[in-house]
Design a protein around this nucleic acid. Structure first.
Length: 492
RNA sequence: GAGCCAUUAGCUCAGUUGGCAGAGCACCUGACUUUUAAUCAGGGUGUCCCAGGUUCGAGUCCUGGAUGGCUCACCA
C-alpha cells in the first residue's frame, strides 16, 4: 500500500501519462453527462428485440482485446457485462486512437448497433465512443478477482467492481429490507425514526459507545436498541410502529458481530408474543420469497426450510430434551447452580435460577437448533422488559427464534405495568452496582410514559444483518455490511 | 482480551537444506479488421509487512511489533 507516492509505481505513472496525452488531444478525461438509454443485461436477455437497434450504454471497461485496426472489449454497468466491438472503419481515426489509449478500468460511454458475432456473442458495434472517466489505478486481475479479505473490506469499491457475487449480496440485502418494509406497511405499521443519541442507553443488555455534545456539554450514548422510544410511541397512540436502523454496541468483533449493525424492531398494540410468533415466521418467509423466490434455502451446506409454521418449544422443555434436566423440579438458586455444574458448566456462586437456566440453554440446546425454532418462556432475570407469566412469575412471555443455532429474533409480550417495570430497573441497577456493565440503567422517563398507560402489546426485534447472512449464504457478518468496522492502517 | 495461522510485483500465488527474487494475469514496445482467460515476438516493473537479532550470507532461523483470518471469551 505504497500507492500514495505515484512515482514509485510504474502502472500508475503510465496511466498519468495517458491522462496527459488525452488532455493534450483536447479530450476531457473526467467528463460530464452521458445519456444512457440501455443496460447490458436488458440487451443480452432480449436480443431479438434489440438486434440491429441503436443503443447507448455506459460503464467500466473490464477487458480489452486489440487486433490492430479492430478491437473487442467488455463494458460493465450495474446490470452486468456486454461486449463491444470497436472498428477503425466504423469510428474513424480520431476515436480509434482515443480508444487505444483507454485502459481497463476506465469508464466510457458508447453508442452503436446490437449484433451477434460469428462466435455467437451479443455485441455492440460501436459508432461513437467517449471517455467519461479515466481510471488512474490498475484493477485486480480479471480471472481471480480480489481475494484478499482485508482489501475487500477496506476497499469495498474495488471488491464491487471485480467480484460480481459481492454486488449480488448487496442487491439481495436491499431486496430483503424492501420486502420487510412492504410486509409491515401492508399490515398497517408506521415506519418511524427515533434518536440514535440517548442520554440513557436502554432496551438491551449491552455496553454502549459514549460521545459528547459540546453545546449542551453532556455525554450521550449511541443507542444499543430501539425499544424504549418505540414503546413511548405506543403510549402516544401510534399503535403499530417499526424502525429499521443502526444500533451500536461497544463489544468484540467476530464473524457474527460488528460494532454497528442493523436492527428491525416493531411494536403492535393489543397483540402478544403469540401474535409475534406468527408475524415473525411469516415476515421471514416473505423476505425469503421476495428476495430469493423460495422459502427453502441452503446455508453453509445445510438445507433450511423457512416455510411456516416453525417448531415451538419452551426453554425448559428444550433443556429437558437436550440436557435431560427438568428445571421445573429445581426451585432454588443453589440447586440450579449445582445441576449446571454437574453438566460441566462454569457457574459463579451468586447467579440466580433464571441465569443458570439460560446458561444451560445456551450451552446445551442452542447448537441443536438448526431448523427454525421458537424457544419460549424465558427467565425473568434476563428479560427486564418482558411481561411475566401469570402462572409462573419466574418466567416471561418471551421467545427467541433460532436458525442455524443463531438467535435471529427476540420478542415478547411487552411489560406495561409501570410499577413492575420500575422494580425490574431497580434490580438491574443492583446488578450494575455489582459490576455488571451490561445491566440496564434506570430510565425514569420511560417509567413515566408507562404510567400514562401503554396498551398491551407484542414487540419483536430482528437482527437484519444476520437474516441477510442466512439468505445470502454468507459466513461472516462482514460479507453483508458494505463497510465493516476495521482498525485503521497507519500508512494510509 | 487469549490461542493458532497468514502477510513476497498492481492482482492471484510459488519460493527446496539459509546461498543472485520467481510464474500467470495486468503493464510497456511491436504485429494483427469477428476476438473472448484473443494470439505471436520482446521487456520484470519488488521496502519479500515493520524493527531488531543469529550468521560469511536471511524471503527462509530467533525475538518484539503491525494488520488480517479462524477458534475461544462477551454479545445480537
Amino acid at each position: 500500500m505504497k500507492l500514495m507516492d505515484s512515482e514509485l509505481n510504474e502502472l500508475i505513472k503510465v496511466r498519468r501519462e495517458k491522462l496527459q496525452e488525452l488532455q493534450d488531444m483536447g479530450i476531457q478525461p473526467f467528463g460530464g453527462r452521458f445519456e444512457v438509454t440501455d443496460k447490458a443485461q436488458e440487451i443480452l436477455s432480449d436480443f431479438e428485440g434489440y438486434e440491429g437497434k441503436q443503443v447507448k450504454v455506459a460503464g467500466r471497461l473490464m477487458a480489452k482485446r486489440g487486433h490492430g485496426k479492430a478491437s473487442f472489449a467488455h463494458l460493465q454497468d450495474r446490470t452486468g457485462q456486454i461486449q463491444i466491438y470497436v472498428r477503425l472503419d466504423n469510428v474513424g481515426e480520431d476515436t480509434y486512437s482515443v480508444f487505444k489509449k483507454i485502459d481497463i478500468g476506465d469508464i466510457i460511454g458508447v453508442s452503436g448497433k446490437v449484433f451477434k458475432t460469428k462466435k455467437g456473442e451479443i455485441t455492440i458495434e460501436v459508432h461513437t465512443l467517449e471517455i467519461l472517466t479515466k481510471s488512474l489505478r490498475p484493477l485486480p486481475e480479471k480471472w481471480h478477482g480480489l481475494k484478499d479479505v482485508d482489501l475487500r473490506y477496506r476497499q469495498r469499491y474495488v471488491d464491487l467492481i471485480v467480484n460480481p457475487e459481492t454486488r449480488d449480496v448487496f442487491i439481495t440485502r436491499s431486496k430483503v429490507i424492501k420486502a420487510m418494509r412492504d410486509f409491515l406497511d401492508e399490515r398497517g405499521f408506521l415506519e418511524v425514526e427515533t434518536p440514535m443519541m440517548h442520554p440513557i442507553p436502554g432496551g438491551a443488555l449491552a455496553r454502549p459507545f459514549i460521545t459528547h455534545h459540546n453545546a449542551l456539554d453532556i455525554d450521550l450514548y449511541l443507542r444499543i436498541a430501539l425499544e424504549l422510544h418505540l414503546k413511548r410511541l405506543l403510549v402516544g397512540g401510534l399503535e403499530r410502529v417499526y424502525e429499521i436502523g443502526r444500533v451500536f454496541r461497544n463489544e468484540g468483533i467476530s464473524t457474527k458481530h460488528n460494532p454497528e449493525f442493523t436492527m428491525m424492531e416493531l411494536y403492535q398494540a393489543y397483540a402478544d408474543y403469540e401474535v409475534m410468533m406468527e408475524l415473525t415466521e411469516n415476515l421471514i418467509a416473505s423476505c425469503a420469497k421476495e428476495a430469493l423466490g423460495t422459502t427453502v434455502i441452503t446455508y453453509q451446506g445445510e438445507e433450511i426450510d423457512l416455510t411456516p409454521p416453525w417448531t415451538r418449544i419452551t426453554m425448559l422443555d428444550a433443556i429437558k430434551k437436550y440436557a435431560e434436566i427438568d428445571f421445573t423440579e429445581i426451585t432454588t438458586d443453589e440447586e440450579a447452580r449445582n445441576a449446571a455444574k454437574d453438566l460441566g458448566l462454569e457457574i459463579d456462586d451468586d447467579v440466580s435460577w433464571g441465569t443458570v437456566v439460560n446458561e444451560v440453554f445456551e450451552e446445551k440446546v442452542e447448537p441443536h437448533l438448526i431448523q427454525p425454532t421458537f424457544v419460549t418462556d424465558y427467565p425473568i432475570e434476563i428479560s427486564p422488559l418482558a411481561k411475566k407469566k401469570d402462572d409462573n412469575p419466574k418466567l416471561t412471555y418471551r421467545f427467541e427464534a433460532f436458525i442455524y443455532a443463531r438467535e435471529l429474533a427476540n420478542a415478547f409480550s411487552e411489560l406495561n405495568d409501570p410499577i413492575d417495570q420500575k422494580e425490574r430497573f431497580i434490580k438491574q441497577l443492583k446488578q450494575r452496582e455489582k459490576g455488571d456493565e451490561e445491566a440496564h440503567m434506570m430510565d425514569e422517563d420511560f417509567v413515566r410514559a408507562l404510567e400514562y398507560g401503554m396498551p398491551p402489546a407484542g414487540g419483536l426485534g430482528i437482527g437484519v444483518d444476520r437474516l441477510i447472512m442466512l439468505l445470502t449464504d454468507s459466513p461472516s457478518i462482514r460479507d453483508v455490511i458494505l463497510f465493516p468496522t476495521m482498525r485503521p492502517r497507519d500508512n494510509e
